[in-house]
Design a protein around this nucleic acid. Structure first.
Lengths: 259, 259
DNA sequence: ACCTTATGTTACCCGCTGAGAGAAAACGAC
DNA sequence: GTCGTTTTCTCTCAGCGGGTAACATAAGGT
């Protein structure tokens, strides 16, 4: 691969996924970490990306200094591992709903784009990602929430009241065995509640940092979930409580699967 | 093979594949690497390609990452000029609909993001652009058409049947005094028709290359338009016919205003 | 016959890449 | 907060492949 082409792809990968680790880039592009770092250095000086320990993130349009630390980049690794596992749940011809969120974005990136499914989402970003090649994509419509870049409100809700899905990839800010799945925003909770109701099978994707967290509004109980794909350290109590509700718990490992 | 022909094919090969190695070019064209390098040197000095260690890549329109992956925006200068003029039509507190399209994308990029308007669009890409800072953004929802990246179908239509806008920035593939505004796709035409109907004021943005073109389905007549902002050479007949229908015709000039 | 232009060959130079040692940063525990 | 550990970053060096330039050769034009 040509250096210029490699740099272009780095920018693509980093901006599309809200950041990527040096290791992941080295892995995916087949170059050493040293080379990736040199590229990142150059790309940063060109203002195309922003570096942080462990990787790089897209340029933040305004002040919105994110100051990604190592932890955030590690979470990216975890999300990628989750995504790799999650796409195994896809089967030909399904109608699949992708919830808005950074973890589901990773799932969308890993998903095949060969037209084998009908993808539906409430996130414009995921819509653009999912629609890259052959897939059919539908968007719920509605009001764009800035924080999460998801569509909410009456338009989104009325869409979800008249549609049905085979599979749902659901994200969550907070997963707790007592309060269930919670999120800070009421409108968003309402939309998530509807998508859970409308899906035959619900796959929750959330890294372990979300476990034990509680937020404002509950939108689903543990029993609403069919499968929980996570990464990192999951405590035994949580796992048992999920399994008591017949939820399949899968812990994805960030190890590179193919070498 | 003639040298000129070889150079032309090199440019083709390089641009088609997002880059190509010297070795591959030498191989495919049946010349030594030395000759290919000499060609690349010349082609680079002409600005037709960009060299990179081991080969060459297509020219990149100034750092802006967006240029990658998708086809570069044609007539970018004209569209920028149109956009600069178009945003002058915005006033505080309006509900503004942005039609999907490359020209309207430029308008969206030039538009203030200070929360002074409610932006509505049928393009996920424009939604992301418009929602960058403070503005409220709503999306119609619907099925994503791959070619134009716009949302169409029943969901989009039903949204447009119950909403109203103060201002519409409308794009068009083809503008002709006889056939009116036309587009190749029926579903898209239907959506455009509805947005025109729902807007109090319609501003058509289209560079002069669209004038005189005709496409399959008509979605608006000249009389539906309130203002036509264009750039380039507009013939007198077209201008007169528009003005006879009380359309304000504005020709934006691509001169850089600040240097 | 001579010159010009185009192409290939060769030898040397330079830039890219990857590996490793030391410095720096981030994280977790206290 | 501070400390120690771990990970990542920076820097340097060496190897390799591509780039450059000079030269040789061949073809076409004058």
């Amino acid at each position: 691969m040509l250096p210029a082409e490699r740099k272009r792809r780095i920018v693509e990968l980093v901006t599309a996924a809200d950041g990527r680790s040096v290791e992941a880039l080295a892995d995916e592009l087949g170059y050493s970490k040293a080379t990736i770092r040199r590229d990142l250095q150059e790309l940063e000086s060109q203002g195309l990306i922003e570096r942080s320990h462990g990787g790089a993130v897209p340029v933040t349009s305004v002040g919105h200094e994110q100051a990604y630390g190592q932890k955030e980049v590690q979470n990216l690794e975890a999300k990628r591992a989750i995504a790799e596992r999650a796409v195994e749940e896809l089967t030909e011809g399904q109608v699949v709903f992708f919830d808005a969120g950074t973890t589901t974005m990773q799932v969308a990136q890993s998903a095949p784009k060969d037209g084998s499914m009908l993808a539906v989402t409430n996130s414009p970003r995921l819509a653009v990602e999912l629609g890259k090649e052959e897939n059919d994509v539908k968007l719920t419509g509605g009001t764009l929430r800035r924080r999460t870049r998801s569509l909410v409100g009456p338009t989104a809700e009325s869409f979800l009241e008249r549609t049905n899905f085979d599979l749902l990839f659901l994200g969550a800010n907070a997963v707790d065995v007592e309060t269930g799945l919670t999120t800070p925003n009421e409108e968003e909770a309402r939309v998530k509640e509807l998508m859970v109701k409308r899906a035959s099978r619900v796959v929750l994707v959330a890294d372990a940092t979300k476990i034990g967290e509680r937020s404002f509004v509950t939108f689903a109980d543990l029993s609403d979930i069919d499968m929980f794909i996570t990464a990192g350290e999951i405590d035994d109590e949580t796992r048992e409580r999920f399994e008591a509700e017949d939820v399949t718990v899968v812990v994805a490992t960030p190890e590179a699967p193919t070498l």
